[in-house]
């Protein structure tokens, strides 16, 4: 067997073959519709425990910061969180800190609110988007009506029963930040740093590890990280959704990544070994 040729063909493999493997690793598990089970982590249980403190009539602020690009990862969290809040009879004030995700969030909450027969203006309100995250976070503490004279739908905030008497963070029993970017950091600095408001977070996988240190310092009470975090939360709520369903595809694609890294390195080592042997 011509080993040098075999090794050379592995290292020079067409990128489109790798793309095909990735596509198959995602598509096949989805077609098999296998539902995975996960063991909740301490951080996810702390997130759930934070929401469990809510009672009938409590008001929760949900701050979302992601665009459609991160929707598959963070929408399941928003869905599960809104369901959890509505099931407990609590009320939801939602705001968006990413312009591109604004329509997405409203549509999601709208669906859940309809499912649980919640009335807009009484049980939930969507404030919409404002630029400058630090200013929005700080302004919500003192003058929410000045920053948001109207909600996203054009209603006067002072005329909606839920927001008419909203005066700042003391009116919120919990703040939940669902984020794929730097606004989670702004919430830690400007929200918790200044007002010590109780906060839980749902973060995309890319930023999750960097925020683990804020969980240790209790600046964030509990955190869901990536699809796995969303799946754990769905499981805790006994609400099997997209996250649990996608976890098998996620597993298989992770294995493909591991295999590609290992094969890539073996082929490199083999090339070096063959080169040395031929000298």
């Amino acid at each position: 067997m011509d080993y040098p040729a075999v090794v050379a063909s592995i290292t020079k493999i067409d990128r489109r073959f790798i793309y095909l493997l990735v596509g198959l690793a995602v598509a096949i598990p989805l077609l098999l519709a296998h539902q995975a089970e996960v063991e909740p982590t301490e951080e996810s249980m702390a997130f759930h425990a934070g929401v469990s403190t809510l009672g009938e009539g409590d008001v929760v602020l949900l701050s979302t910061d992601y665009h459609a690009g991160s929707a598959s990862e963070l929408n399941p969290m928003v869905r599960a969180f809104a369901t959890d809040v509505f099931r407990r009879g609590a009320r939801l004030v939602v705001l968006s800190l990413n312009a591109q995700g604004t329509g997405l969030v409203e549509a999601e909450i709208n669906k859940i609110a309809a499912e649980y027969d919640r009335t807009y203006g009484v049980d939930w309100v969507f404030l919409g988007f404002r630029p400058s995250t630090p200013a929005v976070i700080l302004a919500l503490s003192a003058s929410p009506h000045s920053l948001f004279p109207q909600d996203f739908r054009g209603n006067e905030l002072a005329e909606l029963p839920l927001t008419a008497h909203l005066n700042g963070y003391r009116d919120f029993s919990l703040i939940c930040v669902i984020s794929s970017g730097a606004t989670a950091q702004d919430w830690v600095i400007y929200g918790h740093g200044r007002f010590q408001c109780p906060m839980v977070a749902g973060l995309s996988g890319g930023i999750g590890p960097a925020f683990q240190s804020f969980v240790d310092t209790h600046q964030i009470a509990g955190v869901l990280v990536g699809l796995r975090g969303a799946a754990e939360y769905e499981q805790m709520l006994e609400l099997p959704g997209e996250a649990l369903r996608a976890l098998f595809a996620q597993s298989l694609t992770h294995m493909l990544f591991v295999a590609l890294i290992v094969i890539g390195n073996i082929s490199l080592l083999a090339t070096r070994w063959i080169e040395n042997a031929m000298r």
């Binding site: 995602v26 989805l30 690009g69 598959s72 590890p209 990280v225 990536g226 996620q250």
Partner: peptide, 18 residues
């Protein structure tokens, strides 16, 4: 972080395939 980022991006592809 790389592993978590890969996990995050895989989820996005799963969303489109789904």
């Amino acid at each position: 972080t790389f592993a978590s980022l890969a996990m995050s991006r895989i989820t996005l592809l799963i969303g489109r395939f789904l």
